[in-house]
Simulated scan of single mutants.
Amino acid sequence: MRVFGVTGWKNAGKTGLVERLVSEITGRGFSVSTVKHAHHAVDVDQTGTDSFRHREAGASEVLLASGKRIAVMQELRGAPEPPLADLLARLLPVDLVLIEGFKRESHPKVEAFRAEAGNALMAPENSTIRAVASDTPLQVQVPVFDLDNTAAVADFILKEVGL
């Protein structure tokens, strides 16, 4: 499976860029899935629903299915977070998986960068970053794209992964 990441510090524009890239790349006829890393506890379930009650009762996994979507919730219950490779192995085959976060993993990435966030640029110290999508001109050793030029970023990613 082809994978490419979007990384950056908090408030750098990662989620917006991933959202626009999914729309742009699927609009070109490719299938795309995403993996998003969260640094906090997340719960997509609602208190009081049947599936929530199943998890609270101790179920290791709850698969919720309807005519519109399927959701699988797995409780780690103290087990370590699975490695990215294990998470990718759970996905159905697609043309491209866009990965948001996971900055320390070895897959190729584009860094989202907003000057107003006040964070240092990661690209000079991270060889997995192949390009930067920035709201300001930068002098770095990798290609720099305008953060809002989604088509150019998508062109770069698709070329990098061979699509």
Rank of each mutant, 00 (worst) to 15 (best):
T49Q: 12
E56F: 05
E61G: 07
D50Q: 07
F4A: 09
T136F: 09
F145R: 06
A59Q: 01
F156M: 08
L63T: 12
S31P: 04
A57E: 03
L63V: 15
A120H: 11
Q74A: 15
K14Y: 04
E125N: 14
L98R: 03
V110P: 02
V132E: 03
L158S: 11
G5A: 11
A85C: 06
W9V: 05
S60T: 12
A133D: 03
Q139D: 15
P124T: 13
A131G: 13
G5L: 04
T49V: 11
W9H: 14
V35T: 06
V32W: 01
F102Q: 03
P93D: 07
V32T: 02
G162D: 07
S23M: 11
G78N: 12
M73H: 06
R90L: 15
D148Q: 08
L88V: 07
T47A: 05
I129P: 05
G8A: 12
E111V: 13
R69E: 01
L84V: 10
K68R: 11
I129L: 14
K10E: 01
V140G: 12
D86T: 13
H39I: 04
G101W: 03
D86F: 08
D43F: 09
P124W: 14
R77W: 04
Q139A: 14
A12E: 00
P124L: 15
S127K: 15
G101E: 03
D43T: 12
S31G: 09
L138K: 10
Q139M: 11
